[in-house]
Computed example of a mutant assay.
Amino acid sequence: MFDHLSLGVSDLPASEAFFLQALAPLGVAVAMQGPFGIGMGRHGKPSLWLVPATVPPAPLHLAFAAETRAQVDAFYAAALAAGGRDNGAPGLRPHYHPNYYGAFVIGPDGHNLEAVCHRPED
């Protein structure tokens, strides 16, 4: 449904560094940038825009699609290494559905970031 999403951040350079490190295992990189913000995504398409917030941003929950459970694990490790706080280690969440494998990290502005794979384990 969404083409892209803008996320207000209080410190653009710090958030750029955090998101690039945390999302690198999912194939996300900078796709575009300018005075309006930094667009990140896969295959050169900006899907997530980081924009300077004029007021402290309200925390959001953003879930990023992972192709494999290993990518979820790598996201979690990279996000913690980038300074994120644990909000749920990688694992199955069968209360969502039997193959829901996700991990949760709180980012620099308090956003709850998740990587999720919906596929069964290989």
Rank of each mutant, 00 (worst) to 15 (best):
E16T: 12
R42Q: 15
A89I: 10
P98T: 07
A82Y: 00
C117Q: 04
C117H: 06
V55T: 14
A58M: 13
G8F: 03
A63F: 09
A82P: 03
D122K: 10
S10T: 12
M1P: 14
P120N: 08
V30N: 05
P120S: 13
G39P: 04
A65Q: 15
V9L: 11
V28F: 14
Y101W: 12
P25C: 10
H118D: 13
G44K: 11
R69S: 10
P25M: 09
V28M: 11
R42N: 13
E121Y: 03
P94L: 02
F18C: 02
G34W: 10
M1E: 13
G102M: 03
V72T: 13
G39F: 01
A103P: 02
A14E: 05
K45C: 10
Y76T: 01
G37P: 00
L60V: 13
L80Y: 04
W49L: 07
M32F: 12
A31Q: 09
V30L: 07
G37M: 09
P98Y: 04
F75G: 05
V116N: 08
C117F: 09
S6Q: 13
L62R: 02
D122I: 05
F19L: 02
S10V: 03
F75P: 04
E16D: 03
A82C: 07
P52N: 12
A31C: 15
T54K: 11
A78V: 01
Y101K: 04
A63R: 12
G8Y: 06
G39R: 01
L23G: 09
Y100R: 05
R42W: 09
G34V: 09
F2R: 10
L60N: 11
P35Y: 07
T54Q: 14
A78K: 01
A58E: 11
H61T: 14
R119H: 12
I38A: 04
F104T: 00
A103T: 00
P25N: 07
V28Y: 15
Y96N: 08
Y96H: 09
G91E: 11
A53W: 03
L92C: 06
V55D: 11
G37D: 06
S15I: 00
G41C: 10
A103I: 01
A65W: 12
S6C: 13
V72G: 09
P52D: 02
C117E: 06
A77V: 12
G91Y: 06
G27R: 09
A58D: 10
A65M: 15
V28Q: 05
L60F: 05
L50D: 01
L80F: 05
A74R: 07
P46W: 06
P25E: 07
A82I: 01
V51N: 07
A78N: 03
F18S: 00
L48K: 01
M40K: 01
G44A: 13
F75E: 08
P108N: 02
G88A: 05
E16P: 00
Q33S: 14
A24C: 03
R93L: 08
W49D: 02
N87Y: 02
E67I: 13
G91V: 04
D3Q: 13
A24L: 07
A70T: 10
N112D: 14
H118N: 15
